[in-house]
């Protein structure tokens, strides 16, 4: 594991607008978190649901323990964590999906938090792809979706982070949900696994 200082420095660069530093940052933090997610999922094969709360908890503790990390830019910090969560859940769903010949995995976006269920399901949701599209059209909305559904922040918290009102957050999320849902429905179900 790389030093805490390195992560902090990369995070700092990212927050001051050097987008290139995001990928190295992912590479530093991601493998460990992926491992944690797997451990949570593996548990005795009894679980068919990955509850991301454990991962969120670990993720935050890991990131926050970088002692010199200051909270001057909380929005970036939360957004970073949310995008990490998204990548963990999506990658996880993909990896699991490869092992399941029939059916697949679903990542429903609930008001609480996204989660993965290994339920045989014809409508494999390729959320990731739809989100990438949304990101190219309206990065703020995709960020909001990540915060709210992948990191599980409340509307109040998301509003505070994005310096807007709860009502605005709720409205934007409704729109984003409509858009995503429409996007996913429009897709040929069989093509879901493609990226």
């Amino acid at each position: 594991m790389k030093s805490a200082g390195e992560i902090t420095e990369l995070l700092r660069q990212w927050t001051v607008g050097e987008p290139d530093s995001l990928d190295p940052l992912f590479k530093l933090v991601y493998p460990r978190l992926r491992q944690i997610a797997s451990a949570l999922f593996r548990r005795e094969d009894r679980s068919s649901i990955l509850q991301p709360t454990g991962v969120v908890n670990e993720l935050f503790i890991k990131l926050l323990r970088q002692h010199s990390l200051q909270f001057e830019n909380r929005e970036h910090f939360f957004s970073f964590a949310a995008s990490l969560m998204r990548r963990i859940l999506i990658d996880h769903a993909r990896a699991e999906g490869r092992d399941k010949r029939d059916g697949g995995l679903r990542i429903p976006l609930t008001d609480e938090m996204a989660w993965i269920a290994t339920i045989p399901s014809p409508d494999l949701l390729d959320i990731d792809r739809a989100l990438k599209e949304l990101q190219s059209i309206d990065p703020r909305k995709s960020r909001l979706v990540e915060l709210r559904f992948f990191l599980g922040t409340t509307s109040e918290e998301a509003a505070e982070l994005l310096q807007t009102s709860k009502a605005t957050v709720d409205r934007e999320l409704k729109f984003a949900r409509g858009w995503l849902s429409d996007r996913l429905r429009a897709r040929d179900p069989g093509a879901g696994a493609a990226t």
Binding site: I49, Q51, P108, L109, T110, D111, W115, A117, I119, K174, F175, R177, G178, W179, L180, S181, D182, R185
Partner: peptide, 16 residues
């Protein structure tokens, strides 16, 4: 109209 229908339709899913 399409988007609003989709938003209203998007099921409020709970863990099965």
């Amino acid at each position: 109209v399409e988007l609003l229908l989709a938003a209203d339709d998007a099921p409020e899913l709970a863990a099965p």
